[in-house]
């Protein structure tokens, strides 16, 4: 565990990302409420707000869940991933506004505390069409809150990346709960088949992209997975690796990034210590490998972050024979400095 955490700085790209995000959310809410008020003059503004916020948050959640596999399938989408945490926190805040408006609208000014009313207002747990769908939304909101509250890197280093990553896998549980919240709630009241179709399309896109990305990676792994027998495995001709870039391979179950820089070759683990970002998709800037996801840096010959940072990744021995790069897929302990192979 490292003692320091990197502040993720506000830079112009991030500001632009956040501005676009805020603009997109406002555009969505405005489109929903204005179209709703014009097409359904009898609808009340509270209902339109509750529904506009709900569908906006749910749409953002779909986007968040799709970004991961989209980036694995096509690096063009990487800029979306760059600031996914702000997307997550924004989604949580919109969902929170939906929940608060719903509790005020449906539970306040009665004979019972609104929160008690939310928990006990419907006890038909044994029935599917009458199930208290609000409680599924509440459970999802709690998970989203935990994720939003621990999104800062301070928590990442305190909890260790492994635990943090596991916590943040909770987004899939929250997604499942919300599918229940929508199917047992709004879809029981609405009569238009459009809503069933849109919900089904959302589920299909999210699962389909995850399956496609997983399948592609498995195929890559199988194509390149050499048995580890103490042998060096061939990677590619050194000339095929662009300067300050890497070639990624998978060998002996390890994902390895082989970098070329200053006519030298070094191999390090492909897995960033921060959030498992793909280091081999990053480039070398000022002598350091820069993770494409949030900019963590590693020295290519030792796998160590430059001081004062303490992250370290495994390194791998390399060799060049007749212009072809070979790598030994047995990892050296993280941070082990190895002499780079020189391109003649």
């Amino acid at each position: 565990m490292s003692l320091h955490y990197k502040a993720i700085f506000w830079n112009p790209v991030k500001k632009q990302y956040d501005l676009l995000l805020a603009g997109g959310v406002l555009l969505y809410l405005a489109a929903f409420t204005v179209a709703g008020a014009l097409l359904h003059p009898a609808a009340t503004i509270e209902t339109l707000l509750i529904r506009g916020l709900a569908t906006c948050a749910f749409l953002l959640l779909h986007l968040i869940l799709c970004i991961g596999p989209l980036c694995r399938l096509n690096p063009r989408f990487l800029p979306l991933l760059y600031n996914r945490r702000h997307l997550g926190v924004t989604m949580f805040l919109i969902a929170l506004a939906h929940a608060i408006f719903s509790i005020v609208q449906f539970h306040s000014l009665g004979d019972t505390n609104p929160l008690v009313s939310l928990l006990t207002g419907n006890t038909r747990f044994e029935s599917i069409p009458q199930f208290p769908f609000e409680l599924l939304g509440l459970a999802a909101l709690v998970i989203l809150f935990l994720m939003a509250a621990t999104s800062h890197d301070f928590w990442l280093s305190l909890l260790t990346p492994r635990v943090w990553k596991q916590l943040h896998m909770g987004v899939y549980l929250a997604y499942g709960l919300l599918i229940g919240h929508v199917t047992l709630g709004a879809l029981q009241s609405e009569t238009n088949p459009l809503f069933v179709a849109i919900t089904a399309a959302g589920i299909t896109i999210v699962t389909g992209l995850h399956l496609a990305a997983g399948w592609r990676e498995r195929r890559l792994d199988q194509a390149f997975d050499w048995k580890v027998s103490g042998e060096f495995v061939p990677v590619c001709p050194a000339a095929e690796i662009p300067a300050n870039r890497a070639k990624m391979l998978s060998a002996g179950g390890e994902r390895i990034a082989v970098f070329r820089y200053d006519n030298k070759i070094s191999a390090i683990s492909n897995v960033c210590q921060h959030q498992n970002g793909p280091l081999g998709e990053g480039r070398i800037v000022d002598g350091c490998v820069v993770c494409p996801w949030h900019g963590y840096q590693y020295l290519p010959d030792s796998g160590a972050s430059p001081p004062p940072f303490q992250e370290k990744v495994a390194t791998y021995r390399t060799r060049i024979d007749s212009g072809v790069v070979y790598v030994d897929p047995r990892p050296c302990p993280p941070g082990t400095r190895l002499e780079p192979s020189r391109i003649e």
Partner: peptide, 13 residues
């Protein structure tokens, strides 16, 4: 996003 918002708003019961 904007198109979906209009579609969802219009489709309400």
């Amino acid at each position: 996003g904007a198109l979906l918002a209009i579609l969802l708003a219009a489709g309400q019961r």
